[in-house]
Write a protein that binds this DNA or RNA. Structure first.
Length: 594
RNA sequence: GGCCCCAUAGCUUAACUGAAUAGAGCAUUUGACUACGGAUCAAAAGGUUACAGGUUUGAAUCCUGUUGGGGUCACCA
C-alpha cells in the first residue's frame, strides 16, 4: 500500500478514536515532508481543527501520539505549526524497497480493458514536416505510451490530408516547371521536392496577381482570378471526377511525399497502427447531415447550404454543407468520428491537434451530442500550444519554418561533436557510435519538447542549440550510463544483487530515493489522467538528480560490508529500471554507455 | 467587437484537488576529479508569481476588474 493511503487510513482511525468524528478522505492531506524538516510524510492538520477544537500544535501532537502508539510502521513524529511530520521505521522502508526491486515491470499499471484511439501527426502532403509537427508527433507518441502504461489498449492513427486544392497547386507547378524532376533524378527527399513546387506555385501566383493589379484590377479580384489558381481549381475538379491523368499524377507525387514522411517518422522513432487518408474519408459525414436535417437540428438555406445553429449554446452558426452540396472540413470530422466509434469500441478518442482548433473541437463535440451520440463526451482534444521562434510564429511564406529533417540533422551533429570531444567512446565501432549519436540527439530534442506542459506555447531559438547539460534528456541518459557502468563492473566481479539482504539499515539519502521510486506508479496515473507526458519527464529528472547527489558522496563498489554493497547495487539497478521505463514512455532510449 | 487560452528570477520552466521559506536548469560568480564516468556534484546571487481588489486560518493556484500577449468567430483545412 502506498504511504499516503496508509496514513490517511490511520489518521482517520485516530480522529475517530480521539474526537469521535468521521471525516471524508478529502480532509486528510498527506505530502512528502520538506527537506528542512524531520520526518518522511506530513499530515496537514488544519482541516481537522474543526473537530478537535484545539490549537494546530495540540491537535498534531494528539494525533501523532495516537499514531505512534497504534501503528508499528510509524516510529516518531513532530509537529511544526499545523504540520504533523511522521517518521517511518527502517523496516518499513526495507519492505517497500524490496517490493519495488522485485517488481519486474514497475510503473506499469494493471489492464483496464479500455481501448483508446489517439490521432496525431495528420500532415498535409504539400510540404515537409516542421517543428510544429515534431511537437505534435512527440506528444501523440508519448501520450500513447503513457496511456499504455496506464493499462489501456491504445490505437495510434494518422489522418493524412492528401487531397484538396493545396496538392493541386504543387502538381500544377511541377507540370509547368518541373521538367519531369523526380526524387531520384534530383536526389531530393520526396516531401521536400513536392514542398518546393508548392512554394514555386505561390511564386507564380504572386507574380500573376501583381501583373493583374498593375493592369488595373483590384487586389481582391486579382487574387481570385489569377490564371494559375483557376487552373488549380480546375485540376481539383478533374480529380474529383476521377480524371485518370490527374489521378495518376496525384498518386505519383503523393507516393514521393509518403516515402519522405516515412523516413522522418522512422528518424523520430514513431509509427502508427493505422493510417487514414482524407481522399478516402472526405465524403463521410454527408449522411449525418441528412440525419440532422431529419431530426430538425440542422437547417437548409435557400441556396442549398446546410447549417447548425449553435447560438443558443453561446457559439455561432456553423456551415456543414456548401450550397453546391460538397462538404467542408467538419463534415468529414463528424463522419470519421462516427465511423471510428462504430468500427472499434472506443472508450476514448484523443485528437492531438494544436490549440488554434479549440473552437473547432468544441463545435464538433456539441454537434455530435446534438445528433444523439453519447460517445461525444469521450472525445478529448489534446490541445497543445504553438512552437514559436524568438521573432514570433513560424511562417512558411517568410521562410522562418524550422524544418524537421534539418533540425534532426543539426542535433545529430551536435551530439556527435560533444561525444567525440569528451572522448569516452573511442572503442566503439562506427555503427555503435552512429546509433549513440542518434539516441543522444533524439533524447535531447524529445525531452526538450516533452518536458513543457503541452498546453503552453513554447519557444524555440534555432540559434541556441538544444542543451545537453542540466535539465535535459542527455542528463538522464548520462545518469543511466553511469549506473550501468558500475553494474557492469559489479557483475564482472560476480557480485549478485537480486534481493535485499536481511537487516540492512537504509541511510536517509537512500530512503529519499526509495520514496521517489515509490511514487512512480502514482505519477504515471496522474500523468495519464492529465494527458501530460511532461509530468513523467519532470519526475525522471527529479529522480536522476536525486540519484546523482546520492552517487556523488556514496561509496558503492569499494564498500566492504557485503550486505550494504548488495543493497546499494540493488538500489542502483532499481533507479535504472525506473528511468528506463519513464523515458520509454517519452520515446527516449537510454544508452549503456555514452 | 463576442468567446477561449496564457502571464512565475535576465532566459527556459516546476509547483497534485488552496498549505510550511514559490522548486529546478541555463547564463553569472566560486569551489570539488591519486573513489566507482566532471554530459556530474557543492555553494553564492537572482522573485511584490503582470497589476488592483476580494474569499480563506492559509492564494502562483479560487472570484471580480485592469493591463499586456496569443487564438478563434470562413461556402479554408
Amino acid at each position: 500500500m502506498s504511504p499516503d493511503i496508509f496514513i490517511i487510513e490511520k489518521a482517520k482511525a485516530a480522529v475517530s478514536a480521539l474526537y469521535g468524528a468521521d471525516l471524508p478522505d478529502a480532509s486528510f492531506q498527506v505530502q512528502v515532508t520538506r527537506k528542512e524538516f524531520e520526518g518522511d510524510y506530513t499530515l496537514v492538520v488544519f482541516p481537522l481543527l474543526k473537530v478537535s477544537r484545539l490549537s494546530p500544535e495540540a491537535t498534531g501532537n494528539a494525533i501523532g501520539d495516537w499514531l505512534k502508539e497504534n501503528t508499528a510502521e510509524i516510529s516518531a513524529y513532530n509537529t511544526v505549526k499545523g504540520f504533523l511530520n511522521l517518521s517511518f521505521s527502517n523496516s518499513y522502508w526495507a519492505g517497500l524497497f524490496s517490493s519495488i526491486a522485485a517488481a519486474d515491470d514497475f510503473g506499469q499499471l494493471p489492464p483496464t480493458g479500455k481501448t483508446i484511439m489517439v490521432e496525431f501527426s495528420s500532415p498535409n502532403t504539400n510540404k515537409p514536416l516542421h517543428l510544429g509537427h515534431i511537437r505534435n508527433n512527440l506528444l501523440g507518441w508519448s501520450v500513447s505510451r503513457l496511456l499504455e502504461a496506464n493499462g489501456h489498449k491504445v490505437m495510434k492513427v494518422n489522418l493524412v490530408n492528401d487531397r484538396g486544392i493545396h496538392i493541386c497547386k504543387s502538381m500544377l507547378a511541377w507540370l509547368k516547371t518541373g521538367n519531369g524532376e523526380t526524387p531520384e533524378s534530383s536526389g531530393k527527399k520526396g516531401d521536400h521536392l513536392v514542398g518546393d513546387y508548392y512554394v514555386r506555385f505561390n511564386e507564380i501566383y504572386r507574380q500573376e496577381v501583381e501583373e493583374l493589379t498593375a493592369g488595373g484590377m483590384s487586389k481582391e479580384e486579382a487574387e481570385k482570378n489569377a490564371p494559375s489558381l483557376k487552373e488549380a481549381q480546375n485540376m481539383l475538379l478533374k480529380w474529383e471526377q476521377g480524371d485518370s491523368e490527374v489521378v495518376a499524377l496525384w498518386k505519383k507525387m503523393n507516393s514521393w511525399v509518403y516515402a519522405g514522411f516515412d523516413k522522418t517518422y522512422s528518424d523520430l522513432g514513431i509509427s502508427f497502427d493505422r493510417t487514414y487518408y482524407e481522399s478516402q474519408t472526405y465524403l463521410l459525414g454527408k449522411a449525418l447531415v441528412q440525419k440532422g436535417l431529419d431530426m430538425g437540428i440542422f437547417e437548409k438555406e435557400a441556396d442549398g447550404s446546410v447549417w447548425c445553429d449553435l447560438t443558443a449554446d453561446g457559439l455561432d452558426r456553423k456551415l456543414l454543407l456548401r450550397g453546391d452540396g460538397t462538404s467542408v472540413y467538419i463534415t468529414q470530422d463528424l463522419g470519421t468520428a462516427e465511423q471510428r466509434f462504430s468500427e472499434y469500441r472506443l472508450d476514448e478518442h484523443i485528437y492531438v491537434v494544436g490549440n488554434e482548433q479549440n473552437y473547432h473541437f468544441q463545435v464538433l463535440k456539441l454537434i455530435l451530442k446534438k445528433l444523439g451520440f453519447d460517445w461525444a463526451d469521450s472525445i478529448y482534444h489534446l490541445s497543445y500550444g504553438m512552437v514559436e521562434l524568438p521573432e514570433g510564429k513560424m511562417k512558411s511564406r517568410e521562410g522562418t519554418v524550422v524544418d524537421a529533417d534539418d533540425l534532426l540533422e543539426k542535433m545529430y551533429n551536435t551530439a556527435r561533436e560533444t561525444s567525440l570531444e569528451l572522448g569516452k567512446i573511442d572503442n566503439m565501432t562506427e555503427q555503435e557510435q552512429d546509433e549513440l549519436f542518434r539516441t543522444l540527439s533524439l533524447g535531447a530534442l524529445k525531452y526538450f519538447i516533452i518536458k513543457v506542459d503541452p498546453k503552453k506555447t513554447m519557444l524555440f531559438d534555432p540559434k541556441e542549440s538544444i542543451d545537453f547539460n542540466g535539465n535535459t534528456g542527455p542528463f538522464i541518459q548520462y545518469t543511466h550510463a553511469r549506473i550501468k557502468s558500475i553494474l557492469r563492473k559489479a557483475s564482472g566481479r560476480n557480485i549478485s544483487y537480486d534481493a535485499l539482504p536481511q537487516g540492512v539499515e537504509l541511510s536517509p539519502k537512500e530512503i529519499r530515493l526509495v520514496k521517489l521510486l515509490d511514487i512512480f506508479p502514482g505519477k504515471i496515473a496522474e500523468a495519464g489522467q492529465a494527458h501530460s507526458p511532461a509530468i513523467v519527464a519532470n519526475y525522471a529528472y527529479d529522480l536522476a538528480k536525486e540519484f546523482n547527489q546520492y552517487y556523488h558522496d556514496t561509496i558503492i563498489l569499494k564498500e566492504e560490508d557485503e550486505k550494504l554493497l548488495q543493497c546499494r547495487l540493488l538500489l542502483l539497478s532499481s533507479v535504472a529500471k525506473v528511468l528506463v521505463k519513464a523515458m520509454d514512455i517519452l520515446g527516449i532510449k537510454l544508452p549503456e554507455r555514452m
